[in-house]
Design a binder for these strands. Structure first.
Lengths: 165, 165
DNA sequence: TGTCGATAGTTCACATGTAGTATATCTCCC
DNA sequence: GGGAGATATACTACATGTGAACTATCGACA
């Protein structure tokens, strides 16, 4: 980007409203946090209309993406979350009839989780509203900006890549 | 299950995984979510070393930034969170001796929250490690990239700006 | 002055995320 | 084949978010 000092100026103007940040790094991190909070807030409300929590939707979405039964651990890894939390989460999804659990025959420690037809239908009904909300939240950014944003976030995540989870 | 259909679907999903998802908008949103999850995970561990949860640290940080007592509601607003959650949060901070609550004399509905000296000392001790982690997480991005990232996230948040909270 | 709507906090019920620990199984090595 | 350590889940305790409903107080208006 050639006009780096231009955006820097605009940035400082915005910052004046409160106290300046300690560093650009802190500012970026807080921006990520705040943006995420606001966006997840919105998605949470949408999911609730379908009687799902954000985590529950996330599990169903992952299972559909995989297209076949998955062990708990693998789901937990994709959610960047601790395994113990999966138990209660899956308990409720099972009680709601959205998933089935089946113990693996080769390795009896493993339990496979599978989507039910009910869940697939529900996901299909949610696709349009979810996609709409995605566009509503960041649709005012240009294609170039969206690509830049994703690229910057991907680069940011490199710092935690080879660490222990 | 019809194996041929299933594997074809999986293939398409795998292709999508490496490239844009359903849309650039969705990709950007998921990048925000994933980056935030990983980063907050790290900060959470750091805070825990000082016997604070992320939310607790956030409250203390906001109070220090303001520099004077604040009503619960205002703290909650800055945290983009629902007021009811503040009660228990403040209860624990008070029990730990980090804050004091005082009822406002003019408007007896309002309760002001104030930092104790203990909390100020704690925050001071945490400043260096926190700043270090900020740099560790996004320090590999250039100054220009950090500025770009913040600017893009600020622009992204415009979509929820004039909405109801 | 007295009631009504608005506002600040609280309380409650429930789902979640985290750490720590327990249990069942598997794998490997003797 | 039997036991040690590794692995996959489950269970428990606690802090947190969320919505709904409640209490105390304030402000305005009849």
């Amino acid at each position: 980007m050639k006009e780096s000092h231009v955006s820097k100026k605009r940035l400082q103007d915005e910052l004046k409203k409160k106290r300046p940040f300690d560093s650009l790094e802190q500012e970026a991190n807080l921006n990520i946090l705040r943006t995420n909070d606001q966006f997840q807030n919105r998605f949470g409300r949408l999911f609730r209309e379908f009687d799902l929590t954000p985590s529950q939707y996330n599990v169903l979405r992952i299972l559909r993406g995989e297209g076949k039964p998955m062990p708990c651990q693998e789901i937990a890894e994709r959610m960047i979350q601790v395994v113990p939390a999966m138990t209660g989460l899956l308990d409720r999804l099972e009680a709601q009839g959205h998933i089935r659990r089946e113990r693996c025959t080769e390795d009896r420690r493993v339990i496979y989780v599978e989507l039910t037809e009910t869940a697939k239908d529900l996901l299909k009904r949610m696709d349009a509203p979810v996609s709409e909300l995605h566009k509503k939240l960041v649709g005012h950014l240009t294609q170039t900006e969206l690509t830049q944003l994703s690229r910057l976030l991907e680069k940011a995540r490199l710092s935690v890549q080879e660490k222990d989870k």
